[in-house]
Amino acid sequence: MNPQGTFQLPPALSEYAPRVDELYYFIFWISVVAFVAICVALVLFVWKFRERKGGPTKGAQSGDHHALELFWTFTPLILLTVLFHWGFKDYVAAAVAPDDAIQIRVRARQWAWEYEYPNGMITPGELTIPMGRPVKLVMSSDDVLHSYFVPEFRIKKDVVPGMYSSLWFQAIMQPRRYDAQVYCAEYCGARGDTGGHSAMLSTIHVVTGSEYEEFLREGPSRPTDLQTDTQWGELLVTQNNCLSCHHTDAATTLPAPSFAGIFGRHQSLEGGGEVTVDENYIRESMLTPQAKIVRTYTAIQMPPFHFSDHQVDAIIAYLKTIH
C-alpha cells in the first residue's frame, strides 16, 4: 500500500487502489523489458549490419523460419491471458458492492455534483464519508454524459442521463481525516470563459466514524482551515461552479446576473415587479431559483442548490464583499 503515491501514480487512498497499482507496475515493468529488448535489438542490428565500403551491397537471403514465426506469434498469448485474467478478477471485485455499503445518491449536471445522504440531507459540491466503511454511489445525470473519476481511489464510471450507474469504494483507515479529489472525466462542454467541464470538480472528505455521525446530525460546517464565513462562501461559489453563468465582473455578459455589487441592487423582475437584493432574495434565489427571475435572464434555467443554513449565510457574506 502506498498512501503517499509514486512518481507515476497518485496516493492510493482506497482499499482497492493497491490492487490496481500492483497490476499497473507489473504491466509497466513488462513493457519496459519488452521495449528495451526491441530497442537494443534495433540498434545492435543496425550497427552490426550497416552497409560498409567494399562490403556486401545486398542483405542475406531470408529463407523460411516457420518455427520462429509460430513461436513469436503464439508465445505472447500466455502473457496476454495472465493480464486479462488479473485485470478481470480485480474488475469484478470493483463491480460488486457489499450489502452493508452506505448508499449515497449522486446527481450530476452541467457543471456540478450534488450528493444526497441516507437521512435525506443534500450537500452540493462536496461529499463527506467515513473511512474504513464501504460506500456505494448511485449516480444519475440531469443533462449530458459525465463521468465520476476519483484518481486516489482508482475508480471511474460514466454518469448517463436516463439510467443509473454505480460505483463503490472503501476509503483506507488513516489517523486523521483526509481528502480525495473528484474530476468529471467525460467531456461535458463549457460556456463563456470559465471552466465548464474542467471545473466540474468535487472533493470527498474522508472522516472518522464519529465525525461522520456528527456530520449527518449537524450538516456541513466551515472547513477548519478557513477563518471566516466570507472565505467559505467564496469556496462554495467556486466549488459549485456558480461562475459558469454568473460573474464577479460587471462588464462581462453571461447568461445570469453579475455578482458585482449585487447586494442592495434594485432589479426588475421577469413578469413585472421589482426587488431589492437582500438576504432573503439571495436565499430564495439559491433554494428556489425559478421563483423570481431577473428580467431578460430566461435563457438558462438555474437548478436549485440545496445549501444548509450555515452555507447560505457564508455565501451571502461573500456576495456582500463583491462590489
Binding site: V20, L23, Y24, I27, F28, S31, L83, G87, D90, R154
Partner: peptide
C-alpha cells in the same frame, strides 16, 4: 496493454 487490462484500463480511461 494498460488499457486492455480492465482494472488499469478503467483507471486510465479518459485521462
Amino acid at each position: 496493454l494498460f488499457h486492455a487490462t480492465l482494472s488499469t484500463g478503467i483507471f486510465l480511461h479518459d485521462t
